[in-house]
């Protein structure tokens, strides 16, 4: 409990100690935490997708178009945008879940890339390579005594933080529910699960749809903050970042990918940027990736687990010494 209270305080105080550009990074980081956490839900079933970031893009494009072309109010367009991403994922599940493992990885890449190229090719309605600009921002909230302007990164950070925490709670509940347990079964014992009457394919589809819906929501959060979307923002390079956050962090726990995302983003955006190594940034980032998979194959979460176990051991030792 004390830990959660402390964490809340830190999260609330965090933006006030940062510069303006770091606050903007903080907003994107919060959104990315949702992306990587929703990605983890899919990996629970044992499938690794390379199309997750494109699903995020589907949400972003959909919400941008709904609000811009049809005049749907932004908060509602965000929700429908996220659902659109889920719907597209459901459609894609039919061809994609004829494949497994490595083939699914490549197949999801192909499917995602096709969607991305369609955005690039069709100027109407997707805006071609330049994408959609001047997307309606999230509306200001006027409570009479206080006006919340969401153009300010600090306010938008609090807003995304609330949404993301809510989503994480939902994701956590899903994982601990019967559905989540079945996801694990589908991953580790798919033949056994099948013979026990579990429709393995339906559960894989469910995981894909849920994770894509949350990715879509993350996309809408991003689109209405930065105000533009374009096909290059959702390319394979972004996907590679999500993949590396998940793998460097580890995917057996809910916090693993989050730690991976925070650590690598902080390293990339703050530490290396402060050092002024603009061109050398990818070099050091790449080296860190190699070193971390070589020496931490179980991810950062394993380091945390061992750290906690060590601390507990110390406490126990101290107490027994005292006795």
């Amino acid at each position: 409990m004390a830990f959660i209270g402390l964490l809340t305080l830190v999260l609330i105080a965090l933006p006030h100690g940062l510069s303006y550009s770091q606050r903007e990074i903080l907003v994107v980081l919060t959104i990315n935490i949702l992306v990587v956490s929703s990605y983890r839900l899919l990996t629970l079933t044992g499938e690794w997708s390379l199309g997750h970031v494109v699903m995020m893009g589907v949400g972003a494009y959909a919400s941008a178009l709904y609000s811009k072309e049809w005049g749907v109010p932004v908060p509602i367009s965000m929700i429908i945008g996220a659902l659109t991403a889920g719907l597209v994922a459901w459609g894609l599940s039919f061809p994609l879940f004829r494949m497994k493992g490595f083939y699914f990885l490549i197949g999801s890449f192909a499917a995602g890339e096709i969607i991305r190229l369609l955005w690039k090719r069709f100027r109407d309605p997707f805006g071609g390579p330049k994408g959609i600009k001047r997307i309606d921002p999230f509306p200001d909230i006027d409570l009479g005594f206080i006006r919340i302007d969401f153009f300010d990164p600090v306010n938008y950070y609090y807003f995304t933080l609330i949404i993301v925490v809510l989503c994480l709670v939902i994701l956590w509940r899903i994982e601990k529910s019967l559905i989540g347990l079945t996801f694990h079964a589908v991953h580790w014992q798919d033949k056994l699960a099948e013979s026990a009457g579990v429709n393995v394919r339906d559960y894989r589809t469910l995981a894909l749809v849920i994770s894509s819906t949350f990715a879509g929501l993350a996309g809408t959060l991003l689109a209405h903050y930065i105000g533009t979307v374009n096909p290059n923002g959702f390319d394979i390079e972004q996907m590679v970042f999500v993949l590396t956050w998940a793998i460097v962090g580890g995917t057996t726990t809910l916090y693993g990918p989050i730690i991976g995302c925070i650590t690598l983003t902080a390293l990339n955006e703050i530490v290396l940027r402060e050092l002024g190594l603009e061109q050398g940034r990818p070099l050091i980032y790449g080296l860190i990736l190699i070193v971390s998979v070589l020496f931490m194959p179980k991810g950062l979460e394993d380091v945390v687990k061992r750290g906690v176990a060590w601390a507990q051991l110390q406490i126990v030792k101290e107490r027994t010494n005292g006795v």
Partner: peptide, 14 residues
């Protein structure tokens, strides 16, 4: 796979 992605970044940046 991830290591080769890291290597990709290293070569490209170099």
């Amino acid at each position: 796979l991830v290591a080769s992605i890291g290597f990709l970044m290293v070569i490209q940046a170099s």
